[in-house]
């Protein structure tokens, strides 16, 4: 009894001194559901599953789709925090795989692509999370096509403490004829993210993405 009390007391003292800290991470995955990107959905779902599989207990994971007006709770596929116990976390991961597969099979492509709104939503969600490291993983061609009734181009973003990783950025036909367009597009998004206080990464492969997050 005394030993447990001493242990508890030591933990309190250590926590007070800042010796105990969380090493959890939060990952918010944004999947482009626009018609131009829908063909890569299978790839995005598989990569998302791999991200989920590599998460540790106590980490958070959310998946939302980038659609016509993304700053909406309706765009969220799921938002979960894994339990601290490894076996329970594994079971939850398996449940999340089911949810991801169901989303991949049943999703409907959108007419527009509101990346700004999606980033704002992800930033808001991550701000509420007390994870040590926070990531937004964007599966998109990074071509924003805003709906007339949902113009978020002037939306302010606060991405401080967040790393935005664009991955599987597909090239359009226009990019093929002028590769500079592709680089310019990525540079523009890099500027938007860094201006908002975030860190920008472009993961060219799945392995690179996993290395960035883990």
């Amino acid at each position: 009894m005394m030993r447990w009390l001493a242990a508890a007391l030591s933990l309190v003292i250590l926590a007070g001194c800042g010796a105990i800290k969380s090493n959890s991470r939060a990952v918010f995955v944004l999947v482009d559901a626009s018609g131009s990107y829908a063909r890569t959905m299978e790839e995005s779902i598989t990569t998302s599953r791999l991200i989920v599989a590599k998460l540790n207990p106590n980490d958070s994971i959310a998946v939302a789709q980038i659609s016509s007006c993304s700053f909406s709770d309706d765009s969220v596929v799921f938002n979960q925090r894994l339990p601290g116990i490894p076996s329970q976390a594994s079971h939850m991961k398996q449940a999340i795989f089911g949810a991801l597969n169901a989303y991949g099979e049943g999703f409907k492509s959108s007419d527009f692509t509101d990346i700004h709104g999606a980033l704002r939503y992800a930033a808001n969600e991550l701000e509420a999370n007390r994870a040590t490291s926070r990531y937004v993983v964007v599966f998109s061609d990074m071509i924003e096509d805003l709906a007339p009734d949902c113009d978020t181009s002037e939306l302010s973003l606060d991405l401080a403490g967040i790393t935005v990783i664009a991955t599987n950025v597909t090239k359009t036909k226009a990019d093929s004829s002028n590769p500079d367009l592709y680089d310019e597009r990525l540079a523009t998004w890099e500027k938007i993210v860094t201006d908002a206080g975030g860190q920008w990464r472009h993961a060219k492969s799945r392995d690179q993405l996993l290395d960035e997050v883990f």
């Binding site: 010796a19 090493n23 540790n56 116990i85």
Partner: peptide, 18 residues
């Protein structure tokens, strides 16, 4: 160390140690 996480949980670090 690995199965111990089932008892004490994972995600916290003490003096930089899980």
């Amino acid at each position: 160390a690995r199965p111990m996480a089932e008892i004490v949980g994972d995600g916290l670090q003490i003096l930089g140690m899980p």
